[in-house]
Design a protein around this nucleic acid. Structure first.
Length: 170
DNA sequence: TAGGCCATCTGGTCCT
DNA sequence: AGGACCAGATGGCCTA
């Protein structure tokens, strides 16, 4: 039922256009092969096709910008030695927890000006957010992640666990 | 091989 | 009218 188009071959002549080929070459140069739904699955012609191709281009750029922003976010988050890159959802959740933990640090410092403070950026000596993330349990279903706006990621302790360390990421 | 993650395409909707 | 944003669909890559 589903039309099959081989994107890596030139057998798809639904869009036998040079701009398509250029995009393919460009993407290839960018180390990423074109993936996902085959272009030309839905027939579009003339001006409409042109608009579609431009819209695809913009959408691609938009997603690239979004990914760049995510990379920026990964860079300012505490790094993990020899760790693989956080996934998108992990990055967002970790950032959420991290911000919360920093806020807590400030709050506690305000409450107890003289007391020694936990470092805002603890040394990641043990555990990692990724060590368990690909081992069975889904990140998105992790029980320790709190998505409700008013509550904290970890209510009863301020520790690495607050960042999602230890028992799964979040 | 199944499941997770991701890039891309696509059409719809909203905004300028 | 055209661009931005969004969600669904699709299929490739990778790991357990």
């Amino acid at each position: 039922m589903e039309p099959v188009f081989d994107l890596d071959s030139s057998s798809c002549d639904m869009f036998p256009h040079s701009d398509v080929e250029e995009a393919r070459v460009e993407l290839g140069q960018q180390k990423k092969r074109r993936r996902g739904r085959a272009r030309g699955e839905v027939q579009v012609h003339g001006v409409r096709k042109n608009r579609r191709l431009k819209a695809n281009d913009r959408e691609r750029n938009r997603m690239h910008n979004l990914n760049d922003a995510l990379d920026e976010l990964r860079r300012v988050l505490p790094a993990f030695p020899d760790e693989t890159k956080l996934t998108k959802i992990e990055t967002l959740r970790f950032a959420h927890n991290y911000i919360w933990a920093l806020s807590e640090t400030i709050r506690i410092a305000d409450l107890h000006p003289g007391a020694p403070q936990q470092p805002a950026s603890p040394a990641w000596s043990s555990g990692s957010p990724c060590s368990s993330r690909r081992s069975g349990s889904s990140v998105s279903s992790s029980p320790s992640y709190c998505s409700s706006p008013g509550s904290s990621p970890a209510h009863d302790e301020y520790s690495l666990a607050a960042f999602g360390f230890g028992s799964g990421l979040f």
